[in-house]
Design a protein around this nucleic acid. Structure first.
Lengths: 353, 353
DNA sequence: GTGAAAGCGCTAACAA
DNA sequence: TTGTTAGCGCTTTCAC
C-alpha cells in the first residue's frame, strides 16, 4: 500500500479511500492509484483490513466430522458411478443454504469441520476470522461456545440449546418429535403395522432423543405399548451400525417386527443392505424408515420413507439471524425457532414410489 | 490479549505462546493464562494473527453465480418435496471436495460466489483473506486474476487457461471433448442414431467449445457430416432455454432429429419437460443427452444419459495443488491436469435404467 | 479532496 | 521458560 501510494504520488490514506469509498476521491487521482496498484500487483490485505476496521465481511459455519466412512468409501470405490453425490450429507445442505443467504447480504462463508481427533480448537480458529457464525449442535464444547458467544453472534443449529449457559444464543431446531410421531402414525394407521422396532443411538443427542419421544407418543396415541427405551441403541448411526442392528433385531427370539424405524437415514440404508442379503423383502416382509431425507435415501432401492429436514432453509435462517444481530441492536432477546419437517412417503414403508 | 497477560501476570508473548505452541510454556503458567482467558472471554483475533504471521490457514474458492432460476424455484416451490437437493450443482460438489481435502491439510475453506451484478471485486475480497484459492473459470476478469496470482497461488478450475497472461497458473480441467465424443459415438454406433442435433451456447466458454469439438469429431469418425456449428445456440444454458430449444428444434421443417445432444444437463432436463408436454416420447421417439452429471440428471424421468464430470475430485486436486505451492518452492513449473470423465448411460438414450 | 499519525491485536526475533 | 520490541498492512480521526 505504501508502494502504491508512493508510485501514484498520494498518501496511503488516499489509497485506502480508493478502495473503501471511491467516490470521495477525485476521479483523476483514483485512476492514478488504480493503475499503480495494477502495476505493482497490489491486493489489499483482508487481515489488515479486518484488524483495523474490526469486521471481516465473513460469516462462518462449524460442523462435526459427520462423514460416514461407509458412504465415503462407497462413493469412492465406485468412482464414476452414480452414488457419488449420494454421500451428500446434512452439512452440505446447510452450507448451501448459508452460502446463498450470505451472498445476498454481501458476506462470504467460511466453513470448517472439526477434524476427527482434532487437537486444537476449531471454533476458535473460525471465530477469530468471522463476524459471526453458526454451529451445528454438539460440534463444540459448551464452555468454549459460551466464551466466544460473549464476543460475537453465534447461532446454534439442530438440537436444543445444550445448556443453560447457552440460552442467550439464537437457536434453530427442527421439529424432530413431530416428524417421527407423524411417520410412526403413518406406519400404524395407514399401513396397519403393529410390531414396531425403534433403533436409536447410544449417545443421546437431543435431536435423537426428540425423535424417540415422537415415536413413543405415536405408539401411545395408537394404543400400542409405549416403550421406555429404543429396541436397540447403536454407537455411531452409520450404515455399518445400521446393518448390524438389522441383523441383531432379526435374530432376536420372538416374533419378527414388521417395521424397523431408524433414527437416521444412514442406518436405515445399511439395514436395507442387510435385509436384501438375508432375503427379507422390503416393504413386503418388513417396513423400514429413516430420518433426515438425505439424497441417498431417495436413491436406494426401495426408496426410503423418511422425515425430511429442511437443512437448506436452516442454513438460510441462520444467516438471517446472524445478519440481524450484526446490524441491529445486540440487546434483543434470543430467538429460538423450530422448523417444520415433512414425511416423505416412499417405497420402503409400502407406499408407491 | 494484554488484559489476559496482565490478569495472569505474564507477558503478551507468553499468552501468544499458549495458543501457538503450548508445549513451550510451563504447565502451570499455561493453566493460569487459559483461565484468565476464559474469565475475560478472550478469543484470539484471526485477523491480527494473519497479519502478523502472514498466513491465514484458509483456502478459498470463487465461483460464478451459476444458479439456475428454474432449478431454484422448482426446489423452493415444492418445498418438502424431493427435488430439493436436485438443485445441487457443480459448485456444491467442488466445495465438497475442497472442504474434505482442506480439512485433511488443516485448512478451512472460504467460499464466495460472485453476485449477479456484483459491483466490487469478489476475488480481491477472497484473495485478501486466504493463503491461496481456486477459481472456477470465467468467474473473474483475467486481468484481475493476473495481478492477484503474482502474490499467491491460484488454481484455475474447469476450462483451459483463459489467456496467455494466466499460463503460469496451475490448472485443472476435465476431458470435455473426450466425453462428448464418446457419448456421441455411443449414440451413433450403439443405438444407430443418425440425425443428431447439438445444442450449444451463445457465449462460447472453452468447455462448451471443447464439448462441441468432441461431438464433431465423433460425427466425422462415424462418417456423418461434421457440422461447423451447433444446430442451435442458447443464451444461458438453463432449463428454460433448454425447453425453448427443444421446441424450436421440433418445429423446424425437415425430418425430426432422432437425438438431441445438449451441452449441459440443465438444458436437457428442460427439454425433457417440453418433450413430455408435446407428447414426444423419450427415448422411443427421440434420444436426449446432457453433460455434467448433476444429481438432477439421475432423478428426472427418464433418467438422463450424460457425461459425468468428476467435480468433487477436481476440488480435491485443487487443494492438493494449492497446498503444494504453499509448502514447496514456488518456482516449480505450472501444473496442468486433465481429469477423465465417464459416460453415464441411462434411460434417455435408450439404455436400461 | 487529501495527508499525518495513531493504533487495531497479534507474531517473531532476540534477549534474558 | 519467559519478556521486550518491532513491526504486519490497513482504517480512522482530525487537520489542512
Amino acid at each position: 500500500m505504501y508502494d502504491v501510494a508512493e508510485r501514484s504520488g498520494v498518501s496511503i490514506a488516499t489509497v485506502s479511500r480508493v478502495y473503501r469509498s471511491p467516490d470521495t476521491v477525485r476521479e483523476q487521482t483514483r485512476q492514478r492509484v488504480l493503475e499503480a496498484a495494477r502495476e505493482l500487483g497490489y491486493v489489499p490485505s483482508g487481515n489488515a483490513r479486518g484488524l483495523a476496521s474490526r469486521s471481516t465481511g465473513v460469516l462462518g459455519l462449524c460442523f462435526p466430522d459427520y462423514s460416514d466412512p461407509d458412504a465415503e468409501s462407497e462413493a469412492e470405490s465406485t468412482a464414476g458411478e452414480d452414488i457419488d453425490d449420494a454421500a451428500m450429507l446434512y452439512s452440505d445442505q446447510i452450507i448451501r443454504g448459508m452460502e446463498r443467504a450470505a451472498r445476498r447480504h454481501g458476506y462470504a462463508l467460511l466453513i470448517a469441520a472439526s477434524l476427527k481427533g482434532g487437537p486444537e480448537s476449531l471454533v476458535a480458529k473460525v471465530a477469530g476470522r468471522v463476524d459471526g457464525f453458526a454451529v451445528l449442535a454438539r460440534t463444540v464444547a459448551t464452555e468454549e461456545l459460551e466464551v466466544i458467544s460473549r464476543r460475537q453472534p453465534v447461532v446454534m443449529l439442530a438440537g436444543p440449546r445444550e445448556s443453560d449457559d447457552l440460552d442467550h444464543l439464537d437457536h434453530i431446531e427442527v421439529a424432530n418429535a413431530d416428524g417421527q410421531r407423524e411417520l410412526t402414525r403413518h406406519l400404524i394407521e395407514d399401513h396397519g403395522l403393529r410390531r414396531l422396532a425403534y433403533i436409536g443411538s447410544a449417545e443421546e443427542s437431543p435431536d435423537v432423543a426428540a425423535r424417540f419421544r415422537g415415536y413413543v407418543e405415536a405408539c401411545r396415541a395408537a394404543g400400542l405399548p409405549a416403550p421406555d427405551e429404543p429396541d436397540l441403541r447403536v454407537g455411531m448411526m452409520t450404515q455399518a451400525e445400521g446393518a448390524q442392528a438389522a441383523d441383531a433385531l432379526l435374530e432376536r427370539s420372538g416374533p419378527r417386527p414388521d417395521a424397523l424405524l431408524f433414527a437416521n437415514d444412514q442406518m436405515a440404508v445399511g439395514a436395507l443392505h442387510t435385509l436384501e442379503r438375508r432375503g427379507v423383502r422390503v416393504p413386503r416382509d418388513i417396513a423400514v424408515t429413516g430420518f433426515d431425507g438425505i439424497a441417498l435415501s431417495r436413491i436406494v432401492r426401495p426408496a426410503l420413507t423418511t422425515v425430511r429436514q429442511p437443512m437448506r432453509r436452516m442454513g438460510e435462517e441462520a444467516v438471517e439471524l446472524l445478519v440481524r444481530r450484526l446490524t441491529g441492536r445486540q440487546d434483543s432477546e434470543p430467538v429460538s425457532m423450530m422448523l417444520p419437517v415433512s414425511v416423505a412417503r416412499r417405497s420402503s414403508c409400502g407406499c408407491g414410489d
